[in-house]
Amino acid sequence: MKPDTSTIDIRAMALLIILCASWGLNQVAIKAAVADIPPVLQAGIRSMGATCLMLVWMTIKKKSLLEKDGTLLWGLICGLLFSAEFVLIYWGLEFTNASRSTIFLNTSPFVVALGAHLFIRAEYLSRIQIIGMVLAFAGILVAFHESLNLPDSGMIKGDIMLMGAAVFWGATTVVIKASPLAKVYPGKVLLYQLGVSAVILPVASIFLGEPPVQALTPLVISSLIYQTVWVAFFTYVTWFWLIRTYPVSRLAPFTFLTPLFGVLAGSWLLGETVTIYLLCALAMVGAGIYLVNRR
């Protein structure tokens, strides 16, 4: 019997937790390599490597790249949104700090909820589900409360860039779900985004004045392999399969877990401190996700 995909089932929840934990660890992987490879260039290298992997995979699976399925324009739009998101994230971090960026970037689920309500039939949130999203976002505010100081003019510029990145992130999800991309093989959806970003991100790195690769140490190579093979290839394909299969307005709140997993990974691998605020935030995010996805 075909499973009910109008709500998030246990299988999807388990996959989402794995994805968010992987993306949180990815933040640590970027930090680990940033002294030798600047962040936008890292993202470009990741996209180039994952593009090659996806081409090989689709060849093995005998999936056509040239099939006329009406997705080319939508795929290019998603690729541009995907690229703009990462450029704004890393450019914005030059003006604001990482904690503030986490808060503004995690407004993305609200963009997804609004876009789903406007453009996707039968996807809307009830009042209790909206309360759940607000509660989950409040958890992010609790976890990163120390960054909620009055910003200077430079920080405001960075904050605006991160909010722009959140809009592009959310818009990418909505475009995929609301367009013909929702009906094609998830690998092809990812290939559009990886291929476009593989061209744009290295150019953006040069435009932003990032230095070239300084060294390829075992740590840097391990970081790039993790970012390319696991994050950009396996987890992104899984994410796009989830977008195609389940309501995006119910998937999006799970991404609130990503920065919290990032803090936990930083504590585990980099010796950073875990505070009572983080534990409270995890409880709030978990409660918010429950409210959004309760039957």
Rank of each mutant, 00 (worst) to 15 (best):
P109W: 08
P109N: 08
F110D: 04
V111N: 13
V111R: 12
V112L: 12
A113S: 14
A113K: 11
A116P: 15
H117G: 14
L118G: 12
L118S: 11
E123W: 06
Y124P: 07
L125I: 02
R127K: 15
I128D: 14
I130R: 14
I130S: 14
G132M: 11
M133N: 12
V134K: 03
V134D: 02
L135Y: 01
A136V: 11
F137D: 06
A138S: 15
G139L: 10
I140N: 06
L141N: 13
V142N: 02
V142I: 09
V142T: 06
V142E: 01
F144K: 07
E146H: 14
E146D: 15
S147M: 00
N149L: 14
L150M: 15
P151R: 06
P151G: 06
D152M: 14
G154D: 15
I156H: 11
G158D: 04
M161V: 07
L162A: 10
L162D: 08
L162T: 10
M163W: 11
G164F: 07
F168S: 09
G170A: 08
A171M: 10
T173Q: 09
V174S: 05
V174L: 06
V174T: 08
K177Q: 03
S179C: 02
L181D: 07
L181C: 07
L181I: 07
A182I: 03
A182E: 04
V184C: 04
Y185L: 14
P186W: 05
P186G: 05
K188N: 13
V189Q: 01
V189G: 03
Y192V: 09
G195D: 03
V196S: 00
V196P: 02
S197P: 03
S197Q: 05
V199D: 03
V199M: 05
V199I: 11
I200K: 02
L201P: 11
A204Y: 11
A204I: 09
S205H: 10
S205V: 08
I206T: 12
F207P: 09
L208T: 02
L208H: 04
G209N: 10
G209L: 08
E210N: 04
E210V: 05
P211K: 15
P211W: 10
P212I: 06
V213G: 01
V213S: 03
Q214K: 13
L216H: 07
T217A: 07
L219H: 13
V220N: 00
I221T: 09
S222Y: 08
S222G: 15
S222E: 07
L224M: 13
I225M: 00
I225Q: 00
I225N: 00
Y226N: 00
T228S: 00
T228F: 02
T228Q: 01
W230F: 14
W230S: 01
V231W: 04
V231M: 12
A232L: 02
T235G: 04
